[in-house]
């Protein structure tokens, strides 16, 4: 056979993997044991990192990409996709993660930014990227740079859902406000191509799978985000900072899959023990969501 076309690492394949995760929960894990708990609970992917966001908040200092050994150890011991975080703009950390042969890279504002002007040029990488956004402009700039998935930022490590709600509603509102007469103006304002804005107007959604993240601490939080239209959720500190991580992990998966069934939500919300230690947003020393919005 001569002219069989083959393609690898294209946008279709990158965004395709995100499509397989729809309706699911992606969980932050710090070791193999936690990865196993996540997998057993029914997570669709794990995010391997040395410190969950609540600990990063507590410890302060510069938060960086995790040790490759730790990431590879988790990859070796799970069958579901493995993600890991790089600092915003840190393209060398991204090169290292690509060399670890994981499945997805999260260019994350939860880590300390490495570049205040630029994000990673994600189109240049073989691996798909997920990026955070709190409004439509940020989301579209990340997509134009090559992001294959978007997560709304929320405020990670707080256990407080209010910012996640705000960011989701903001993006929805801005999509609703697009119309044929303001496409050009919005494209200039968002600093993206008019074609991209027009596509969003026509489809009434972002052109990539969109999850919610940052502050989900209970099954009800996850179900609320799904009822608002999220395609899945990231749960960071909400699970392994809770009193009973195994129970909470299972309950959040159940709630995400049954987001519109209050009777099931009631059952899975019972007897979970203490939720993670949570924060009012005004008491956060650093608002991660405000990092690198350019």
């Amino acid at each position: 056979m001569s002219d069989i076309s083959e393609e690898q690492n294209t946008f279709t394949l990158k965004s395709g993997l995100a499509k397989m995760m729809k309706g699911g929960v992606i969980m932050d894990v710090m070791n193999v044991e936690q990865a196993r708990i996540a997998e057993k609970a029914g997570a669709v992917a794990v995010m391997a990192l040395e410190k969950i966001p609540s600990q990063i908040r507590k410890d302060g200092g510069v938060a960086r990409m995790s040790d490759p050994s730790m990431i590879e150890e988790i990859k070796k011991n799970t069958t579901i996709p493995v993600m890991a975080k790089v600092r915003v703009g840190h393209f060398v950390e991204a090169q290292i993660l690509q060399s670890c042969d994981i499945d997805f890279i999260d260019e994350s504002e939860v880590l300390t930014p490495a570049d205040e002007e630029r994000h990673v040029e994600k189109n240049e990488f073989k691996l798909p990227f997920v990026c955070g956004a709190k409004n439509l402009g940020e989301a579209l700039r990340r997509i134009q740079e090559g992001a294959a998935m978007i997560r709304t930022k929320g405020e990670a490590g707080t256990g407080n859902i209010v910012e996640a709600t705000r960011h989701w509603r903001q993006i929805r509102r801005e999509i609703d406000n697009l119309n044929p007469s303001n496409i050009e103006e919005k494209a200039r304002e968002y600093r993206v191509s008019a074609d991209l804005v027009e596509m969003v107007m026509n489809d009434q959604r972002l052109p990539v799978v969109t999850f919610v993240a940052g502050g989900i601490a209970t099954p009800a939080d996850a179900a609320m985000m799904m009822q608002l239209g999220a395609e899945g959720v990231f749960v960071g500190s909400g699970i392994f900072d809770a009193e009973n991580p195994e129970l909470v992990a299972k309950a959040i998966v159940q709630a995400t899959l049954n987001f519109d069934k209050p009777d099931i939500l009631k059952e899975v919300s019972r007897n979970l023990g203490g939720a993670m230690k949570s924060l009012e947003i005004k008491d956060c020393a650093v608002k991660y969501a405000d990092r690198n919005t350019n």
């Binding site: 076309s5 083959e6 393609e7 690898q8 690492n9 042969d101």
Partner: peptide
């Protein structure tokens, strides 16, 4: 993943998960 479910529902196939490797080995071909 649906093929994996078929193997559990009585179809006479068995499945090796992730046999082609991680995401970088994903491919579109005829």
């Amino acid at each position: 993943a649906g093929a994996i479910l078929c193997s559990h529902l009585g179809m006479n196939i068995s499945i090796e998960r992730n046999a082609y490797g991680a995401q970088q080995n994903s491919i579109i071909t005829d």
